[in-house]
Computed example of a mutant assay.
Amino acid sequence: MNIEQLSIKYIVIEDEPFARRGLVQLLKNYNFLDCMGMYSNTDDARMIMETQDLDLIFLDIHLAEESGLEFAKQIPPSIQVIFTTAYPNYALESYDLNALDYLLKPIAEDRLKKALDKAISYFQNKAYDKQALQPTDHIFVKSDRKLFRLALDEIQYIEAMKDYVMIHSKDKKLMVAMNIKTILNKLPSMDFVRVNKSFVVNLKKIESVDNHWVTVAGFEMPLGASFKENLLMRIDKQTINR
């Protein structure tokens, strides 16, 4: 996701009116930010958190009724926090709370930009990860200086060959410069499973399994002792007992 597609919904919690308005005014310079409100206390902020999908909170540490650090402990992990404070001695505690950043007042515009660069990076990666988790029916692999679109249903098994893997499908074999762990991470875990150090199989293509061997497309491969329990558990979920 590029920055033009990014929309970060945020609120400001700051009990000093001048500082509150000043920060929001600075944030208006960034088109990817969408202000959902500014609040002087955490009680009012909680109401918007319950009704809106927020991404980011600019949170003052010294608030009249409740410490921003204590409030941060109650914020869902899906919402990121940038602390704002006049006191530098809370920096370590803020990072213990996995804050995105820690801004000292008065907030300099160049320092704010660095904090927002972190926010951009975080939410771009989050959007990418979410997209990567979406179900797909194919992958692209590079073999012999070409990109091949390979339907997941076509893959029978994958064989490790040092720094390469051989992907075996019904109609072809593709040698890919990738180790077996890397390609396994690119495949949906519900359909593909490792049966020993050198082989990954498509669960839908398994023809038979016994205590020592797995057969896929007529090819027998050893069933590793450390992989056996996981494979049998995965198969058991699909087994119909008669």
Rank of each mutant, 00 (worst) to 15 (best):
Y128L: 15
S40F: 00
N185V: 03
K228G: 09
D43C: 09
D101V: 03
L147A: 05
E65D: 15
M166N: 13
L69M: 14
L54Q: 02
M190S: 15
R21H: 09
S189F: 03
M233A: 15
H138C: 14
M175Y: 05
Y39I: 10
S121E: 14
L100S: 05
V165R: 02
A91M: 12
K170M: 02
I139D: 07
E14P: 14
K197T: 01
P17L: 06
L27S: 10
Q156S: 06
D129Y: 06
I82H: 02
F32S: 13
P76C: 10
S7L: 09
L174V: 08
I75S: 03
A160N: 05
A119M: 11
N196S: 09
M166E: 12
K105L: 06
V209I: 09
K146L: 09
E109M: 13
P88A: 06
S7W: 00
D210A: 07
V176C: 11
K197C: 05
M36T: 08
L112G: 10
A177E: 11
A19S: 15
N29S: 14
L69F: 02
N230F: 02
V201G: 04
E229P: 08
Q134D: 04
R111G: 11
I79E: 04
Y39L: 05
L103T: 09
Q131L: 14
K162T: 12
I206W: 00
S226Q: 14
D60N: 12
T51C: 12
C35N: 15
P222D: 05
V176F: 06
Y39C: 09
H62E: 12
S189L: 11
D171L: 01
K181S: 14
G22M: 10
M175S: 13
A45F: 04
E70I: 09
T51Q: 13
C35L: 10
A160Y: 01
R111C: 10
E16Y: 02
E207S: 12
D236I: 07
F148S: 11
E229Y: 01
F71R: 01
A225H: 08
E220G: 07
Y164S: 03
R145I: 05
Q124N: 07
L184H: 10
L116H: 09
F140G: 08
S208K: 12
P106S: 04
V201C: 10
R145A: 11
M161K: 13
L147Q: 09
P188V: 07
N98P: 05
E66A: 04
I240Y: 06
I75E: 02
V165T: 03
M161H: 04
I3C: 07
F148A: 08
S189K: 15
